[in-house]
Amino acid sequence: MKHCLIVDDSAVIRKVARRILEELAFTITEAENGEIALSVCRDGMPDVVLLDWNMPVMNGYEFLTHLRQAPGGEKPKVLFCTTENDIAHITRALQAGADEYIMKPFDKDIVAAKLQEVGLV
């Protein structure tokens, strides 16, 4: 079973994403900010990270930068999942190592399509 780390400061978004990903046969770990997410990754890299941009403590961009520099940090597919929809944010995320970009709000079809694009379903 594939493992997904959901990183978002919104408990509601984490709950919705968890429900969708569990239906797609993923095991789930949650983190409410990038700092906690990095700690989770140090314990074991997930197959995919569903990552919010705007979070307290450590935002998604900072997390992604640290993740990609960590041992094994090139492994997880990273799907930025955010309301930031301008081309500058999208370009910055992709240049930092994101594999795909999902706009909020999202549904199961969107998440499944993006996971298929990165080769995980």
Rank of each mutant, 00 (worst) to 15 (best):
T83I: 14
C81I: 03
I28N: 00
T91L: 15
R92Y: 12
E23F: 01
I102M: 12
P46D: 02
A93T: 12
L21M: 13
T83G: 09
I13T: 13
H66C: 12
A93C: 12
E35S: 10
D9H: 03
D8Q: 01
P71G: 11
S39H: 05
K75A: 15
E117F: 13
Q116D: 15
L50Q: 02
D8P: 06
M55I: 00
Q95A: 14
L38H: 05
A112C: 09
R92L: 13
I90D: 05
V16N: 01
F80W: 05
F63W: 03
D52A: 06
I28R: 04
L5R: 01
T83N: 10
M1V: 13
P105G: 13
A37Y: 04
P71R: 09
P56D: 07
H66N: 14
P46Q: 05
L5S: 07
E74H: 13
V7H: 07
Y61R: 01
K2I: 07
L5H: 02
G72F: 08
H3P: 03
L50K: 04
L67P: 00
V16P: 03
V121W: 08
M103Y: 14
N85V: 07
Q95M: 13
E35N: 06
E22N: 08
A93I: 07
M55E: 02
C4S: 08
D52K: 04
G34P: 06
K15I: 12
V7C: 09
W53Y: 13
I20R: 07
C41W: 07
L115Y: 04
N54P: 10
C81D: 03
P76E: 00
A93Q: 02
G119I: 07
T82K: 06
V118S: 07
N54H: 13
I87C: 13
K77V: 05
A98N: 07
Q69G: 12
V121I: 15
V16K: 10
D8T: 03
A96K: 09
H3M: 11
I110C: 12
M58A: 03
R18H: 10
V12F: 15
N59P: 02
V118G: 08
E117A: 15
A98Q: 04
C81V: 12
E22S: 08
N33D: 14
G73V: 09
V40S: 09
V57H: 03
G119M: 05
I6F: 04
E74G: 15
A70W: 00
L115R: 00
T27V: 10
V7Q: 06
I102E: 07
K2M: 10
T91Q: 15
I110M: 14
A25V: 06
R19N: 14
H89G: 07
P105L: 12
E22L: 06
V121T: 14
V40P: 05
K2Q: 12
K77E: 04
M45S: 11
E30T: 10
P105A: 13
D9A: 05
V7D: 00
V12C: 11
C4F: 05
V12P: 09
V118L: 06
A11C: 08
H66P: 05
F80E: 01
L21Q: 04
Q116F: 13
